[in-house]
C-alpha cells in the first residue's frame, strides 16, 4: 500500500509549533515511516505539487496571498488540520483586529507602505473547512504526535475537549481561584497543557484557548468580585487566543 502523504505549511506564526514537530524525536522517525512528508518548510525546501492526504497548518491568515494559498492547499488535501493558537485562533497578531491597523503599522515599521497585510489576522477555519484543530501556544508535543498518528491510522484523537479544571483536579492541585482568589482562566480554557501554571501555583493564562461552551461572562463577573476591573478582565483574554475568546464571548451573549 502506498504511504499517505503529509504536507506541513507555515503561515503567519513564530514557527514554535513546527519546531515541536522536530522535538518529537523518536516519534518523528516512526511518523516518517507511517507517512511520506511531501512538503515541510522547516525541514526541507520543495515546492508543493500534486495531492496530499494530510495538510498540517501552522500560522494565521494575515495577507491576501495567504488566503489564496490556504484555498489551494485545501483543494489538494484530503484532511486538513491546524496546529497552535495562530492557525486555530488567529494568534497574538489578532490583537490588531481590535485596533487601528494603520496606526499600528506606523508605530512598528519605519516604512509602513511596504507592509502588505490584511487589517485582521484570522484562524484558518474562517477561510476553509478544517478537519481538526489542535490548540495551544505552543502545542503539546504528545498531543501533536497523537493527532498526527490518529489521522494517519484512521482513529479519533484521544484528546479531551473539557476544561483545564478537569485536568487540574485530576492532578490534585490546590485550586488557586477558590483558595486564593487568583484570576484563573482554567474554567473556560481547554485542557492540554498538562496544567502547567496551576501546578506552579499560578493562575492559568488561557494558552489552549476557550473550551467549547466557555462561560466567559460569568467567570469575568467572578473576577470583578475579586476586585479586577471590567477592562482588566477583558485584557486577561486578549493574548494569543484573543480572537477565539472574544468570539466565544460575543456568540454567547
Amino acid at each position: 500500500m502506498k504511504k499517505p502523504t503529509t504536507g506541513i505549511f507555515k503561515f503567519t506564526s513564530c514557527d514554535g509549533c513546527q519546531l515541536s514537530m522536530l522535538n518529537l524525536e523518536d516519534d518523528i522517525l516512526r511518523l516518517t515511516e507511517l507517512t511520506e512528508i511531501a512538503y515541510f518548510r522547516e525541514g526541507e525546501d520543495n515546492p508543493l505539487v500534486g495531492h496530499l492526504d494530510l495538510a498540517v497548518i501552522e500560522g494565521s491568515i494575515s495577507t491576501e496571498s495567504q488566503k489564496k494559498k490556504i484555498t489551494d492547499i485545501r483543494e489538494r488535501s484530503r484532511h486538513l488540520i491546524t496546529i497552535g493558537a495562530c492557525a486555530t485562533a488567529g494568534g497574538v497578531q489578532a490583537l490588531r483586529n481590535w485596533a487601528d491597523f494603520d496606526a499600528f503599522k506606523k508605530i512598528v515599521y519605519p516604512k509602513p507602505d511596504y507592509i502588505d497585510a490584511l487589517p485582521a489576522s484570522t484562524p484558518v477555519s474562517e477561510h476553509v473547512h478544517v478537519d481538526y484543530e489542535l490548540w495551544g501556544c505552543p502545542i503539546d508535543t504528545l498531543e501533536l504526535s497523537e493527532v498526527l498518528t490518529s489521522f494517519l491510522i484512521g482513529k479519533r484523537p484521544g484528546i479531551p475537549a473539557h476544561s483545564l479544571c478537569m485536568e487540574c483536579k485530576g492532578k490534585g492541585i490546590a485550586c488557586v481561584l477558590v483558595s486564593r482568589e487568583e484570576p484563573c482562566l482554567g474554567p473556560v480554557t481547554r485542557s492540554g497543557c498538562g496544567v502547567l501554571c496551576p501546578s506552579l501555583n499560578r493562575a492559568c493564562y488561557g494558552c489552549f484557548g476557550p473550551m467549547e461552551g466557555a462561560n466567559i461572562e460569568t467567570l469575568s463577573g467572578i473576577f470583578e468580585r475579586f476586585g479586577y476591573s471590567a477592562d482588566e478582565c477583558r485584557m486577561m483574554l486578549d493574548k494569543m487566543n484573543t480572537y477565539a475568546f472574544r468570539k466565544e464571548r460575543t456568540e454567547k451573549s
Binding site: R30, G158, K169, C175
Partner: peptide, 29 residues
C-alpha cells in the same frame, strides 16, 4: 447562567464515579 460547566463539582464529589477511556497512540513505541 451562573454555571461555568468546568466540572470541578464532579471531580471533587466522592460519589461521582464517571470515567471515560481512550487510546493514546505512540508511533515510536
Amino acid at each position: 447562567r451562573r454555571d461555568l460547566e468546568c466540572g470541578n463539582c464532579t471531580q471533587v464529589c466522592p460519589t461521582c464515579f464517571c470515567n471515560t477511556s481512550y487510546d493514546f497512540v505512540y508511533p515510536g513505541g
